[in-house]
Design a binder for these strands. Sequence first.
DNA 1: GCGAACGTTCAGAAATTTCTGAAGACAGAT
DNA 2: ATCTGTCTTCAGAAATTTCTGAACGTTCGC
Lengths: 160, 160
Amino acid sequence: MTGETDRKQAAEHLALTLVGAGMQRMAARVLAAFLFTDAPSLTAGDLSEELGASAGSVSGAIKMVMQMGLIERAPAPGSRREHYRMRDRAWTTLYGRQHAPIDDILSAVAHGVETVGPGPARERLIYMRDFYEFLLSEVPTLIERFEAQRSGQHRGESRP
Amino acid sequence: MTGETDRKQAAEHLALTLVGAGMQRMAARVLAAFLFTDAPSLTAGDLSEELGASAGSVSGAIKMVMQMGLIERAPAPGSRREHYRMRDRAWTTLYGRQHAPIDDILSAVAHGVETVGPGPARERLIYMRDFYEFLLSEVPTLIERFEAQRSGQHRGESRP
DNA sequence: GCGAACGTTCAGAAATTTCTGAAGACAGAT
DNA sequence: ATCTGTCTTCAGAAATTTCTGAACGTTCGC
């Protein structure tokens, strides 16, 4: 069955969990709309109507989601409006981006190590610094591994 | 050099970057205080004074940071107050916890896959589901690898 | 050019989050 | 048992974030 209502509900539900994970509310709703649509592209107007939100907030949200590298402009055939669609690597990109703050944390901690004299605090800071350095080097590898594995088996199929 | 003022500044700076990464303000400040102290344990009163915050907000922050598994009660010798200290595995724990939302995202997406009929949207949802499933299985491995590597070389040293 | 349709920006309103201060609860000392 | 110092809870205040609506630009068709 799965009426249009169910689809919207599922989309809103996902948007809310993304908010729980730290994403801005409207940006999450816009992202979910793209994820759940079968249309090849959406315009700001489409989103405004679909989400029942003002043109202003949709504009801001699109800007954010674009900066995150999750959607892109779609070649607009004859149409006057700007069309957008999800990018292919959206999810790995999103995950990679969530690691951007790690850079900042790392430099803050490294500065701490320089500032603090010998003692337990310094040992702790060194441990933390090493851990975040490790992460920073391993995450890209992780993502590559997923992409390789996926294009390898090319499953793209659903389940029972 | 590195006076007490520098230490506090470095701690506050780290707290702010943690806030940028999504942590609550006061919780981040409390955490940084523990990270940067050479004292074997801190009490709520110590923190309140050190951070210039009310007893109420410190209490709430301690509760959060405890629930995150980053600090623990320290055996209090004769003292009437409650003493706390950082846990050993704090940082790997913190990182693991940041992945808790992934569980939620995963089930929201899985539900989406069930709800949506065949089409581009469904393919997208399947890709996303697979990616988050992959993450969920790989992250614990990653952390184990770090811990193994660390206890292996046992470097615990600073740099020039 | 001129007009109309869209998109963007921004000041202010609304909602949410976060902090404080005071009142209450608890544990140990006397 | 009572008192004292310490922690917790909670209602309201303050600050921050987020949304809206209106004014302004831009681009395309005529």
